[in-house]
Design a protein around this nucleic acid. Structure first.
Lengths: 148, 148
DNA sequence: GTCTATAACGTGTATATGCACCTATTTGAT
DNA sequence: ATCAAATAGGTGCATATACACGTTATAGAC
């Protein structure tokens, strides 16, 4: 009774579909530390060294405003703090000691998820997938709107 | 003391990152017909022949509840209608005449976006990317929770 | 030193996503 | 025919995502 998924000519739909499923896969693991995949990604890119919102957004290639909201649960959990910088417009972000501990816990769980993903999909295939995704992003960049 | 936050070899983060950017690319075009990429995908998978929510969810490999909400704007716009089926539990979905017309308009715009994407990233590379994404999904499926 | 253009953020709005939980209907065993 | 199990679907909740618009503060021109 299950209709096989249609072969999509749309690269965007393909990406969204795979991303949905892969996210579900990782989050099966990350649930044990109370994190979503994006939240883990934020923690992994934060440190005790303060860093501005915009700088973080650029490193993650995420929209600034997505970050503003995505950080809220992490701040509420006491893992991240925001302080004003010399430039009073900036909100410098850094990990608290609890945040460092949570990042360490999360890293271990993430590592197991990544290992299991590579076991399920074949290690060399995942390496090739990673490379293809990076290459795609590089090729796409010139066609994207300037992120001002 | 603190580990420098280097980009991690996380396949999930890579996928989410590329998906974000590719979605932005497509939606630059789809804005002209008032559609998001996911909404276009829904329209493209609907027809005048009625189809149950669950059947559509399986074809798109989307969560059932995501679809419930994603269809609302399309229904509100008068492009999609829901009728009860012989099985009174089902909500059969089909396109209205306006929906068929909108789908046609959207297809033309999408096709231009896809062409431009292939021009920007190289046609053969996009073909390889599409294949890799499909292959990844196939390999991942056995490791995913049963979608009951 | 003032004034304005720019830069760094936040908020409002609309959709996207999936899990937990709930309701209504149908099926299947007795 | 009856009732429990299974099925189709919805709702509450918590993020994820990005664009338009507004606010505050710094920087550059004069």
């Amino acid at each position: 009774m299950t209709t096989p998924p249609l072969p999509l000519p749309c690269t965007g739909a393909r990406l969204r579909r795979l991303t949905r499923r892969v996210t579900v896969f990782y989050e099966q693991y990350l649930r044990s530390v109370g994190l979503r995949l994006t939240q883990y990604s934020l923690l992994a890119h934060l440190d005790t060294t303060p860093q501005s919102l915009l700088a973080l957004a650029e490193r993650l290639e995420m929209d600034r405003t997505t970050l503003t909201r995505g950080l809220k649960p992490l701040v509420a959990a006491g893992w991240v703090v925001q302080h004003p910088g010399r430039d009073a417009r900036q909100r410098l972000l850094s990990l608290t000691p609890d945040g460092v501990a949570q990042r360490a816990r999360a890293r271990a769980v993430w590592a197991q998820a990544q290992l299991d993903l590579e076991a399920a999909m074949d290690r060399s295939f995942v390496a090739q997938l990673n490379h293809t995704l990076d290459e795609a992003l590089q090729r796409l960049k010139p066609a994207l709107p300037e992120d001002n």
